[in-house]
Amino acid sequence: MKELKVFDQKLYVIAQAIADTIVPSGGAFQPGARDVDAALLFDNYLDQFGKLPLKLVKSALYMLQYVPLLTRLRSFTAMGPQQRLRYLEGWENSRFATKRNLFLMLKMLILMPFYSDDAITQAMKYRPACLRPDDCPYCESMGQEQTK
């Protein structure tokens, strides 16, 4: 069982809610953020992040959580699933580049370890392969199917 390395429990809960909204369970492939604990993967991926970028990530998480208190009178984690989705879509499509970029940064840092997780690649039926699978020590060493 992996442990939190950079987030406290409060940030973990916020990250979990955001990850769960970005990649919910169901849809085109079954597992979602909650099924692979994407918030924990996100936390662990940041273990070698510099101090300044880590502060930026934590600040962005808090902003996503508390900014809606001003406009919707409730924090992000207190919203329902549909409201959360609309709220994040608002950040992704904001006319303010800074807001879009902050969200893109969080989305990337959440989704990179998510889409790298074996359970997700298996669910998506993605297996890296090359043009010469019969003679590929890399494919062999990674235990990958020789052809897709």
Binding site: P24, G27, F29, L85, L88, E89, K107, L111, Y115
Partner: peptide
Amino acid sequence: PPEIALPVIQAVGIEGKKRAHEY
């Protein structure tokens, strides 16, 4: 690879997963 390509697709939620599945 998908872990680098898919996070930048402009969509979240079920719609985002649908696009990702078309990798």
